[in-house]
Simulated scan of single mutants.
Amino acid sequence: MATPAGGQPPTGVGFPTIINPTITTNNLDYAAAVHNSIAPPMTEYIAIKPIIFLHGEPTITWIKKEFEKLMVRQNLQYAVVAKFSYGRPDLYELRKAIPIQLEIKGPCNIGFLEERHILIRLSLLEDCATLMSKAWELKVRNRYFPLRFLKWDLWFNPEEETTIAIAWISFPGLPTNLFDKESLFSLATAVGKPLVIDKATNNQTRPSCARLKVEVDLLKELPKKIQINCIEEETGTVRSKWQKIQGHNLQGCWVLNPEHSPKR
């Protein structure tokens, strides 16, 4: 097929006419044509939970995994609740003071739960562990507001005290090949949920003892030791060692960290 001079295809032979939107005199018509060429979005599917009436009362049920997914969708996996002992600043002041004075490293969202409690949606596990490790004071307009942090969970009730706390545990004399995060977290699950390894352990500057923070339930009896086994695959021989677990000692904590002492 011959092409006329100037390099333009002949009209009326099946070639589409291309309009450059940057030079057309009717951009609105072009935008409408593009919009009409795109299929309309599908309606969002929402799974509605069925309501079941028992003895005339409505009930609704989720399984635990569904609840956990909802926590992630609502950015609650590292959420904490701040409880003020004697009054609190207004929300505007809190949103300015908390990230700076409490040294929160990641983004956070702060909002009221009720009169004495605020919900802080943290984005880093490290921030969650730091806030729950001690009592704090917030300074706003030359006034100090004591507060402490509680673990938010699915059934948090501001009228009840939580039994979940953060504590340091130590493994004195632990074989140094077990100082990596995977090994330490595995050992720590005997006590609670492992959170953060301390700096000296992570930097390998204190081989005499490994130390990390764990989330514990204060109502449960915590183990004092754990058995470590190593199996030789060729012979099936098992070598074992009882590893001591040292819990958090408040008096020792106050000696090493006087700012935590209740006398302050």
Rank of each mutant, 00 (worst) to 15 (best):
L124Y: 15
I110M: 07
R148Y: 15
L122G: 00
W155E: 12
F156W: 02
T163E: 07
Y144P: 00
G192I: 08
G106I: 08
K193Q: 14
L150T: 02
L131G: 02
A165G: 04
P175H: 01
A135V: 11
F156P: 01
L138Y: 12
P158S: 05
I118A: 04
R143D: 07
E114W: 11
G192L: 00
T130C: 08
I169C: 03
A167E: 10
I120R: 07
L154E: 08
G173E: 07
R116L: 12
M132Q: 14
W155I: 08
F149M: 03
E137I: 10
N142K: 15
D180K: 15
N109K: 13
R116D: 15
A188G: 09
L178D: 01
T163S: 12
E126P: 00
P172E: 12
S186Y: 11
K139D: 13
L122Y: 04
E161Y: 05
G111P: 00
K181I: 04
P194L: 03
K181D: 03
V140M: 11
R143L: 13
E126F: 13
K139P: 00
I164K: 04
E115N: 13
I118R: 01
P194N: 01
P172Y: 05
T176E: 11
C128W: 11
N157I: 02
P175T: 04
F171C: 08
I110C: 10
L131T: 01
C108G: 07
I118C: 02
W152H: 07
G106L: 09
D127N: 08
K105L: 14
M132H: 10
